[in-house]
């Protein structure tokens, strides 16, 4: 098992970490989820038939584990909000995780794009991460997501539109703020 782990680690670890991190934007949680992915991968490695590439298979499992995390988070959040009866105000509560040190080093424009990713749906986010940060082509992305290639293209288009919209809104708000002051 250790040999398999080491091989996977050398080939894909940082990419895997990167994918999960940009999905959830929380380093500590990312570490836990990455471990969970390895556990699933290692315990089912003998069933990997090579019908897809190893990397595609690995990312498809990573995606499932990440979405399991989202579902758990959503349930916890719903229970929490119901308990305190916070309706819409509660929905706007921000998570308590901190921006990573890499974020602090970014220029304003890159900070904006980093923040604007949160305006995308999870489906949109995973497409733009796989396509532009992980450099998967349309076919591999479709295989990882178990989607048709046309769904990948449509989602990618919508994701970029959402990002554009968010960037524009941020600029306008910033300009308005400067004009007022």
């Amino acid at each position: 098992m250790k040999t398999t782990f080491e091989e996977l680690y050398y080939k894909y670890h940082q990419d895997l970490f990167q994918f999960i991190f940009y999905m959830i934007k929380d380093k500590q949680q990312t570490e836990d989820i990455v471990q969970e992915v390895y556990i699933k991968v290692l315990s089912s490695y003998q069933n990997f038939k090579g019908e897809s590439s190893e990397k595609t298979w690995l990312f498809s499992i990573a995606r499932h584990v990440t979405f399991d995390y989202f579902r758990k988070l959503k349930r916890k959040r719903t229970k929490f909000l119901e308990f305190f009866n916070w309706g819409e105000e509660g929905e706007q509560l921000k998570s308590d995780y901190q921006e990573p040190e890499e974020y602090v080093m970014l220029d304003d424009q890159m900070k904006q794009i980093y923040q604007c990713m949160e305006y995308c749906t999870n489906d949109q986010k995973q497409v733009i991460i796989l396509r532009f940060m992980q450099d998967f082509n349309i076919n591999d992305t479709a295989e990882i997501l178990d989607w048709s290639t046309s769904k990948v293209k449509t989602t990618q288009h919508r994701a970029l539109k959402a990002l554009q919209q968010c960037m524009m809104t941020s600029y306008r708000e910033e300009e308005g703020y400067h004009e007022e002051s």
Binding site: H13, Y22, Q35, P100, I113, F132, L160
Partner: peptide
């Protein structure tokens, strides 16, 4: 936008390989 997305910083896992394997 695509170019900017590509330039987003690489997030690195600071843990060692051994540490991760031990946890697993």
């Amino acid at each position: 936008l695509k170019e900017q997305l590509r330039k987003l910083p690489k997030m690195e896992d600071k843990r060692s390989k051994e540490e991760i394997y031990k946890q697993i």
